[in-house]
Amino acid sequence: MGQIILNQVRKTFGDVEVIPPLDLTINDGEFCVFVGPSGCGKSTLLRLIAGLEDVTSGDISIDGQSATELPPAKRGLAMVFQSYALYPHMSVRKNIAFPLRMAGLPKDEIEKRVTNAASVLNLTDYLDRRPGQLSGGQRQRVAIGRAIVREPAAFLFDEPLSNLDAALRVGMRLEISELHKRLSTTMIYVTHDQVEAMTMADKIVVLRAGNIEQVGSPLELYKAPRNTFVAGFIGSPKMNFIQGEQASALGADTIGIRPEHIDVSDTQGQWSGRVGVSEHLGSDTFIHVHDTGLGDTITVRAAGEVDFKHGDTIHLTPRADQIHKFDAQGLRI
Protein backbone atom coordinates (compact mmCIF):
# COMPACT_ATOMS: atom_id res chain seq x y z
CA MET A 1 0.00 0.00 0.00
CA GLY A 2 1.60 3.23 -1.02
CA GLN A 3 2.38 3.34 -4.69
CA ILE A 4 2.41 6.86 -6.02
CA ILE A 5 2.31 7.61 -9.71
CA LEU A 6 2.70 11.07 -11.21
CA ASN A 7 1.49 11.34 -14.76
CA GLN A 8 2.39 14.47 -16.75
CA VAL A 9 2.17 16.54 -13.58
CA ARG A 10 2.74 20.22 -14.26
CA LYS A 11 2.69 23.22 -11.97
CA THR A 12 2.81 26.90 -12.74
CA PHE A 13 2.67 29.86 -10.40
CA GLY A 14 1.15 32.56 -12.49
CA ASP A 15 3.24 32.60 -15.65
CA VAL A 16 6.18 30.79 -14.14
CA GLU A 17 6.36 27.11 -14.87
CA VAL A 18 7.96 25.63 -11.80
CA ILE A 19 7.37 22.00 -12.72
CA PRO A 20 7.24 21.18 -16.42
CA PRO A 21 5.20 18.05 -17.25
CA LEU A 22 6.79 15.23 -15.31
CA ASP A 23 6.29 11.48 -14.94
CA LEU A 24 7.42 9.53 -11.93
CA THR A 25 6.54 6.27 -10.26
CA ILE A 26 7.32 5.63 -6.63
CA ASN A 27 6.82 2.04 -5.68
CA ASP A 28 5.22 0.72 -2.58
CA GLY A 29 7.63 0.61 0.34
CA GLU A 30 10.30 2.53 -1.47
CA PHE A 31 12.44 5.21 0.15
CA CYS A 32 12.51 7.85 -2.52
CA VAL A 33 14.62 10.97 -2.19
CA PHE A 34 14.18 14.16 -4.18
CA VAL A 35 17.41 16.10 -4.43
CA GLY A 36 18.37 19.18 -6.28
CA PRO A 37 19.66 22.67 -5.73
CA SER A 38 17.65 25.28 -3.88
CA GLY A 39 14.62 26.53 -5.75
CA CYS A 40 14.47 23.61 -8.17
CA GLY A 41 10.94 22.70 -7.15
CA LYS A 42 11.45 19.84 -4.68
CA SER A 43 9.11 21.24 -2.08
CA THR A 44 6.60 22.16 -4.72
CA LEU A 45 6.57 18.62 -6.04
CA LEU A 46 6.14 17.23 -2.55
CA ARG A 47 3.32 19.62 -1.81
CA LEU A 48 1.60 18.63 -5.03
CA ILE A 49 1.71 15.02 -3.89
CA ALA A 50 0.47 16.07 -0.45
CA GLY A 51 -2.40 18.03 -1.94
CA LEU A 52 -1.31 21.32 -0.40
CA GLU A 53 -1.07 22.73 -3.89
CA ASP A 54 -3.24 21.99 -6.92
CA VAL A 55 -1.58 20.54 -10.00
CA THR A 56 -1.96 22.83 -12.99
CA SER A 57 -2.45 19.77 -15.17
CA GLY A 58 -1.71 16.09 -15.04
CA ASP A 59 -2.70 13.39 -12.66
CA ILE A 60 -1.48 12.00 -9.35
CA SER A 61 -2.60 8.58 -8.29
CA ILE A 62 -2.07 6.90 -4.98
CA ASP A 63 -2.55 3.14 -4.84
CA GLY A 64 -4.17 3.12 -8.22
CA GLN A 65 -6.77 5.73 -7.30
CA SER A 66 -6.63 9.17 -8.78
CA ALA A 67 -5.95 11.60 -5.96
CA THR A 68 -5.67 14.74 -8.04
CA GLU A 69 -8.96 16.13 -6.81
CA LEU A 70 -8.68 14.94 -3.23
CA PRO A 71 -7.97 17.39 -0.40
CA PRO A 72 -4.85 16.64 1.66
CA ALA A 73 -6.81 15.08 4.49
CA LYS A 74 -8.27 12.44 2.20
CA ARG A 75 -5.05 11.28 0.57
CA GLY A 76 -3.90 9.15 3.47
CA LEU A 77 -0.42 10.70 3.47
CA ALA A 78 1.49 12.10 6.42
CA MET A 79 3.96 14.91 6.18
CA VAL A 80 6.88 16.04 8.30
CA PHE A 81 7.73 19.68 7.75
CA GLN A 82 11.08 21.39 7.82
CA SER A 83 9.91 23.61 10.69
CA TYR A 84 8.26 20.56 12.30
CA ALA A 85 4.98 22.53 12.40
CA LEU A 86 4.07 21.23 15.83
CA TYR A 87 1.02 22.71 17.50
CA PRO A 88 2.64 24.94 20.12
CA HIS A 89 -0.42 25.06 22.36
CA MET A 90 -0.73 21.30 22.69
CA SER A 91 1.32 18.85 24.72
CA VAL A 92 3.39 16.26 22.92
CA ARG A 93 0.70 13.72 23.67
CA LYS A 94 -2.01 15.91 22.15
CA ASN A 95 0.18 16.70 19.17
CA ILE A 96 0.66 13.05 18.37
CA ALA A 97 -2.99 12.30 19.05
CA PHE A 98 -4.29 15.12 16.89
CA PRO A 99 -4.59 13.24 13.59
CA LEU A 100 -6.29 10.37 15.38
CA ARG A 101 -8.70 12.74 17.06
CA MET A 102 -9.49 14.24 13.69
CA ALA A 103 -10.10 10.78 12.33
CA GLY A 104 -12.55 10.23 15.15
CA LEU A 105 -10.86 7.19 16.66
CA PRO A 106 -12.05 5.99 20.06
CA LYS A 107 -10.17 7.30 23.07
CA ASP A 108 -8.53 4.05 24.14
CA GLU A 109 -7.35 3.34 20.63
CA ILE A 110 -5.81 6.81 20.45
CA GLU A 111 -4.14 6.28 23.80
CA LYS A 112 -2.75 2.94 22.70
CA ARG A 113 -1.30 4.25 19.48
CA VAL A 114 0.18 7.35 21.09
CA THR A 115 1.86 5.29 23.78
CA ASN A 116 3.17 2.94 21.17
CA ALA A 117 4.54 5.68 18.96
CA ALA A 118 6.10 7.41 21.95
CA SER A 119 7.97 4.33 22.98
CA VAL A 120 9.20 3.70 19.44
CA LEU A 121 10.50 7.25 19.27
CA ASN A 122 11.82 7.49 22.85
CA LEU A 123 9.37 10.19 23.72
CA THR A 124 7.63 8.53 26.63
CA ASP A 125 9.18 10.84 29.19
CA TYR A 126 8.18 13.95 27.31
CA LEU A 127 4.54 13.28 26.57
CA ASP A 128 3.26 16.01 28.82
CA ARG A 129 5.63 18.72 27.68
CA ARG A 130 4.86 21.45 25.21
CA PRO A 131 6.87 21.56 21.96
CA GLY A 132 8.55 24.74 23.18
CA GLN A 133 10.16 22.77 25.99
CA LEU A 134 11.82 20.25 23.69
CA SER A 135 15.14 20.17 21.88
CA GLY A 136 15.28 20.25 18.11
CA GLY A 137 15.81 16.51 17.82
CA GLN A 138 12.94 15.78 20.17
CA ARG A 139 10.65 18.07 18.23
CA GLN A 140 11.62 16.27 15.10
CA ARG A 141 10.68 12.98 16.71
CA VAL A 142 7.32 14.37 17.79
CA ALA A 143 6.65 15.44 14.23
CA ILE A 144 7.52 11.96 13.07
CA GLY A 145 5.36 10.50 15.82
CA ARG A 146 2.44 12.55 14.64
CA ALA A 147 3.01 11.14 11.19
CA ILE A 148 3.36 7.49 12.07
CA VAL A 149 0.32 7.11 14.35
CA ARG A 150 -1.95 7.54 11.39
CA GLU A 151 -0.40 4.57 9.63
CA PRO A 152 -0.38 6.52 6.37
CA ALA A 153 0.03 5.12 2.89
CA ALA A 154 3.22 7.13 2.58
CA PHE A 155 5.34 9.60 4.52
CA LEU A 156 6.42 12.88 3.03
CA PHE A 157 9.44 14.62 4.51
CA ASP A 158 10.46 18.12 3.49
CA GLU A 159 14.07 18.68 4.55
CA PRO A 160 13.29 17.38 8.02
CA LEU A 161 16.85 17.52 9.26
CA SER A 162 18.01 20.86 7.98
CA ASN A 163 17.31 22.62 11.28
CA LEU A 164 19.43 20.20 13.30
CA ASP A 165 23.11 20.40 14.06
CA ALA A 166 25.50 18.11 12.25
CA ALA A 167 25.81 15.39 14.89
CA LEU A 168 22.09 15.17 15.48
CA ARG A 169 21.49 15.06 11.78
CA VAL A 170 23.52 11.89 11.42
CA GLY A 171 21.64 10.34 14.33
CA MET A 172 18.22 11.24 13.01
CA ARG A 173 19.18 10.06 9.56
CA LEU A 174 19.79 6.63 10.99
CA GLU A 175 16.58 6.72 12.98
CA ILE A 176 14.51 7.56 9.94
CA SER A 177 16.20 4.83 7.92
CA GLU A 178 15.57 2.44 10.78
CA LEU A 179 11.94 3.47 10.87
CA HIS A 180 11.63 2.84 7.19
CA LYS A 181 13.07 -0.62 7.52
CA ARG A 182 10.67 -1.41 10.32
CA LEU A 183 7.50 0.04 8.83
CA SER A 184 8.36 -0.58 5.20
CA THR A 185 6.01 2.20 4.25
CA THR A 186 6.68 4.37 1.25
CA MET A 187 8.67 7.46 2.12
CA ILE A 188 9.35 10.48 -0.01
CA TYR A 189 12.12 12.57 1.33
CA VAL A 190 13.20 15.98 0.10
CA THR A 191 16.69 17.24 0.73
CA HIS A 192 19.35 19.28 -0.93
CA ASP A 193 22.01 17.36 0.91
CA GLN A 194 23.37 14.68 -1.38
CA VAL A 195 24.86 12.77 1.56
CA GLU A 196 21.40 12.26 2.98
CA ALA A 197 20.21 11.22 -0.43
CA MET A 198 23.01 8.71 -0.92
CA THR A 199 22.78 7.16 2.52
CA MET A 200 19.02 6.87 2.87
CA ALA A 201 17.51 6.35 -0.54
CA ASP A 202 16.37 3.31 -2.41
CA LYS A 203 15.70 5.62 -5.28
CA ILE A 204 17.01 9.09 -5.90
CA VAL A 205 15.26 11.60 -8.10
CA VAL A 206 17.58 14.42 -9.15
CA LEU A 207 15.71 17.58 -10.05
CA ARG A 208 16.85 20.69 -11.81
CA ALA A 209 14.49 23.57 -12.51
CA GLY A 210 11.55 21.23 -12.12
CA ASN A 211 12.90 18.68 -14.56
CA ILE A 212 13.90 15.20 -13.56
CA GLU A 213 17.53 14.83 -14.56
CA GLN A 214 17.89 11.22 -13.50
CA VAL A 215 16.15 8.57 -11.46
CA GLY A 216 18.00 5.64 -10.02
CA SER A 217 19.55 3.93 -7.04
CA PRO A 218 22.33 5.82 -5.28
CA LEU A 219 24.99 3.63 -6.83
CA GLU A 220 23.57 3.91 -10.31
CA LEU A 221 23.71 7.66 -10.00
CA TYR A 222 27.21 7.50 -8.63
CA LYS A 223 28.53 5.14 -11.20
CA ALA A 224 26.64 6.21 -14.25
CA PRO A 225 25.43 9.79 -13.97
CA ARG A 226 23.43 10.62 -17.02
CA ASN A 227 24.79 14.09 -17.42
CA THR A 228 27.25 16.56 -15.99
CA PHE A 229 24.63 18.05 -13.65
CA VAL A 230 23.95 14.75 -11.92
CA ALA A 231 27.63 13.88 -11.98
CA GLY A 232 28.47 17.13 -10.25
CA PHE A 233 25.62 16.91 -7.79
CA ILE A 234 26.11 13.36 -6.57
CA GLY A 235 29.32 12.55 -4.72
CA SER A 236 31.39 14.52 -2.30
CA PRO A 237 33.75 16.19 -2.85
CA LYS A 238 32.40 17.13 -6.23
CA MET A 239 33.56 15.43 -9.42
CA ASN A 240 36.36 17.21 -11.32
CA PHE A 241 35.43 18.23 -14.82
CA ILE A 242 38.06 18.67 -17.46
CA GLN A 243 37.57 20.07 -20.92
CA GLY A 244 39.82 20.67 -23.88
CA GLU A 245 42.63 18.53 -25.13
CA GLN A 246 42.47 15.86 -22.46
CA ALA A 247 38.76 15.42 -23.10
CA SER A 248 38.89 15.37 -26.85
CA ALA A 249 41.70 12.81 -26.66
CA LEU A 250 39.07 10.50 -25.21
CA GLY A 251 36.47 11.53 -27.78
CA ALA A 252 34.45 13.63 -25.36
CA ASP A 253 33.65 17.27 -24.85
CA THR A 254 34.04 17.02 -21.12
CA ILE A 255 35.47 14.31 -18.95
CA GLY A 256 34.78 13.87 -15.29
CA ILE A 257 36.83 12.14 -12.66
CA ARG A 258 35.88 11.84 -9.02
CA PRO A 259 38.47 12.92 -6.42
CA GLU A 260 38.59 9.41 -5.01
CA HIS A 261 39.53 8.03 -8.39
CA ILE A 262 42.77 9.91 -8.73
CA ASP A 263 45.98 8.47 -7.38
CA VAL A 264 48.57 10.81 -6.01
CA SER A 265 52.30 10.51 -5.98
CA ASP A 266 55.17 12.83 -5.24
CA THR A 267 57.35 11.41 -7.96
CA GLN A 268 55.38 10.64 -11.09
CA GLY A 269 51.96 10.74 -12.67
CA GLN A 270 49.91 11.69 -15.70
CA TRP A 271 49.29 15.25 -14.48
CA SER A 272 51.22 17.43 -12.17
CA GLY A 273 50.36 20.55 -10.23
CA ARG A 274 50.98 22.58 -7.15
CA VAL A 275 49.33 21.77 -3.82
CA GLY A 276 46.93 24.39 -2.55
CA VAL A 277 44.80 23.88 0.51
CA SER A 278 44.72 20.42 2.05
CA GLU A 279 41.74 19.43 4.17
CA HIS A 280 42.72 16.80 6.71
CA LEU A 281 39.80 14.71 7.85
CA GLY A 282 41.92 12.05 9.49
CA SER A 283 40.54 9.16 7.51
CA ASP A 284 41.07 11.03 4.26
CA THR A 285 42.76 14.11 2.99
CA PHE A 286 41.27 16.32 0.31
CA ILE A 287 43.94 18.11 -1.64
CA HIS A 288 43.19 21.00 -3.93
CA VAL A 289 45.68 21.07 -6.73
CA HIS A 290 46.37 24.14 -8.83
CA ASP A 291 48.27 24.81 -12.03
CA THR A 292 47.68 21.41 -13.55
CA GLY A 293 47.13 22.94 -16.95
CA LEU A 294 43.68 21.36 -16.98
CA GLY A 295 41.70 24.50 -16.36
CA ASP A 296 40.07 24.38 -12.98
CA THR A 297 41.52 23.36 -9.66
CA ILE A 298 41.54 19.60 -9.31
CA THR A 299 40.41 18.08 -6.06
CA VAL A 300 41.80 14.71 -5.09
CA ARG A 301 41.09 12.47 -2.21
CA ALA A 302 43.93 10.54 -0.67
CA ALA A 303 43.29 7.85 1.89
CA GLY A 304 44.60 8.51 5.39
CA GLU A 305 47.15 11.16 6.11
CA VAL A 306 49.45 12.32 3.38
CA ASP A 307 52.27 14.68 3.79
CA PHE A 308 52.00 17.34 1.13
CA LYS A 309 52.66 20.92 2.01
CA HIS A 310 51.21 24.05 0.48
CA GLY A 311 53.13 24.80 -2.69
CA ASP A 312 54.60 21.29 -3.11
CA THR A 313 54.52 19.72 -6.52
CA ILE A 314 52.19 16.78 -6.79
CA HIS A 315 51.62 14.17 -9.48
CA LEU A 316 48.18 12.85 -10.27
CA THR A 317 46.99 9.81 -12.17
CA PRO A 318 43.30 9.30 -12.96
CA ARG A 319 42.09 5.72 -13.07
CA ALA A 320 41.20 5.23 -16.67
CA ASP A 321 38.20 3.00 -16.03
CA GLN A 322 36.62 5.57 -13.73
CA ILE A 323 36.63 8.43 -16.21
CA HIS A 324 33.16 9.66 -17.18
CA LYS A 325 32.76 11.07 -20.64
CA PHE A 326 30.20 13.67 -21.66
CA ASP A 327 29.31 15.24 -24.98
CA ALA A 328 28.86 18.90 -25.79
CA GLN A 329 25.30 18.84 -24.41
CA GLY A 330 26.65 17.46 -21.15
CA LEU A 331 25.11 14.06 -21.78
CA ARG A 332 26.93 10.88 -20.89
CA ILE A 333 28.63 9.11 -23.74
Binding site: A50, L52, P71, P72, A73, L77, A78, M79, F81, Q82, S83, A85, L86, Y87, P88, H89, M90, F98, P99, M102, A103, R146, R150
Partner: peptide, 26 residues
Protein backbone atom coordinates in the same frame (compact mmCIF):
# COMPACT_ATOMS: atom_id res chain seq x y z
CA UNK B 1 3.40 30.03 10.25
CA UNK B 2 1.19 28.66 7.51
CA UNK B 3 2.97 25.32 7.79
CA UNK B 4 1.22 24.62 11.06
CA UNK B 5 -2.16 25.01 9.44
CA UNK B 6 -0.99 22.86 6.57
CA UNK B 7 0.12 20.24 9.05
CA UNK B 8 -3.38 20.28 10.50
CA UNK B 9 -4.78 19.84 7.04
CA UNK B 10 -2.48 16.89 6.44
CA UNK B 11 -3.56 15.49 9.78
CA UNK B 12 -7.07 15.30 8.48
CA UNK B 13 -8.52 18.42 10.08
CA UNK B 14 -11.50 19.94 8.34
CA UNK B 15 -11.50 23.68 7.84
CA UNK B 16 -13.65 24.10 10.92
CA UNK B 17 -11.31 22.00 13.06
CA UNK B 18 -8.31 23.78 11.63
CA UNK B 19 -9.67 27.16 12.70
CA UNK B 20 -11.18 25.98 15.96
CA UNK B 21 -8.47 23.68 17.32
CA UNK B 22 -5.30 25.02 15.76
CA UNK B 23 -5.55 28.62 14.60
CA UNK B 24 -7.73 30.08 17.33
CA UNK B 25 -5.82 28.62 20.29
CA UNK B 26 -2.56 29.79 18.77
Amino acid sequence: PGEILEAARMDGASLKSEILYVLTPM
